[in-house]
Design a protein around this nucleic acid. Structure first.
Lengths: 218, 218
DNA sequence: GCAGAATTTCTTGTATACAAAAAACTTGAC
DNA sequence: GTCAAGTTTTTTGTATACAAGAAATTCTGC
């Protein structure tokens, strides 16, 4: 249970930014938010500071704080970074992964497959997330795991878009299996390469999607 | 010029935490700091929130915020992560680096060498930092660059300790040259490997130092 | 003398008041 | 009508006041 209202408000605002409740450049008006959440400006300001610290908003002194949605370029950069970090996690995990974790990956994959066949989109995402989280954890580096989780979470709303591609899901499952195989074999470089490619392709699909949306708008 | 006192105070507190002005677990008393900086609690609280957000302190609701120095395990994890991120930057930079940047690396290396020979420790650090920053930048990914800079900065106070090793500096210089060579050749994997090793060895030296300090204390 | 309950003090979290800077508006000259 | 100077309004940054929970202290019964 959270005791500080500022934290509750920060969570709510983060969620709103993530789910597109705010647009890039929107000013986060302290008084309006204070009225909206029925608190004074103080907890609002603390919540806004948290958003600024996590990069979801930008503060211009004496002007206010403005939401800052990543543009196409930054998104591509974030996807590329995520791909590289996943690769790193894979490389380390290949050296350190436990048998139990390998089984959990198999289990997550099986659930993922079932979700794909059943058309259960939410289930797919949940199990896919579990798959990746296990790998982060098995890298055996708490600091790295934390960073990976942070970026993974930040990209979450954008990752959902890339599943629109026909056949992407089954391809993704095949990649998952190749990843587990490399991890099981303890093949660092293959695991790194497989994971990097698996995530990088999401960025590329995303890029294509953005381009097509743009050209469709013209 | 910074207009918000909270930012100035946050910078000062960060510096104090970095330079060891506070020890792990120290409570950051709002009233005491307010008196010390001659401001009210409000800007102090905002500054403390920034420390918490950047991981330099921990907040326990209704109890206060406490400085949080990384322990040996976390430090090793941070060094390992830094090594991997540098490796990633090297891999990307090998594909994207400009001729001008290659020359700047040579220049930084030359200055570094000169500093080593002249016993100019500060100069060595400055040029070494320039060397690494150029590589981060040449990775051509602003987001990754930002993350690399952040971690690099966080590890700064601990990196200084590892130069106590006799011969480490000249070895480090040789590694720098191998890195530039790989980058110039556009050899991704070799650049990645060289940079990863270059940083990883710092973590190992650091580990040895910690162990020796511990055994010396017994 | 000591354990535990009750009270007091202290500290954090929140609300409000005030100061200063920026934005918006008004007014007036051309 | 337009532009600019001056004024008002709005908004942020800071100080202070108040509320509530935690820690420290005191008091009481044995």
């Amino acid at each position: 249970m959270e005791l500080r209202r500022a934290d509750i408000i920060a969570d709510a605002l983060e969620e709103l930014v993530f789910t597109g409740g705010f647009h890039d450049g929107d000013r986060l008006d302290e008084l309006r938010l204070a009225a909206q959440f029925d608190v004074s400006r103080t907890p609002i300001r603390e919540a806004l500071q948290r958003l600024v610290a996590s990069g979801l908003a930008e503060q211009i002194p004496r002007r206010g704080v403005f939401v800052r949605q990543p543009g196409p370029v930054e998104l591509m950069e974030m996807f590329e970074t995520m791909a590289e970090i996943e690769g790193v996690c894979g490389r380390l995990a290949a050296m350190r992964i436990s048998d139990a974790a390998l089984e959990e990956l198999d289990s997550a994959n099986a659930s993922c497959c079932a979700a794909v066949e059943g058309g259960d989109s939410d289930g797919y995402y949940r199990e896919n997330e579990r798959f990746h989280h296990v790998i982060y954890h098995q890298a055996g580096n708490g600091f790295l795991e934390h960073e990976a989780l942070r970026l993974h979470r930040r990209l979450k709303p954008f990752r959902r878009l890339q599943l629109r591609w026909r056949g992407r899901l089954s391809q993704s499952m095949a990649e998952h299996e190749a990843i587990v195989e490399a991890l099981r074999a303890g093949d660092c470089e293959r695991a790194a390469e497989a994971l990097r490619g698996h995530v990088a392709i999401q960025g590329e699909k995303f890029h294509l999607l953005m381009s097509s949306l743009r050209s469709a708008a013209e």
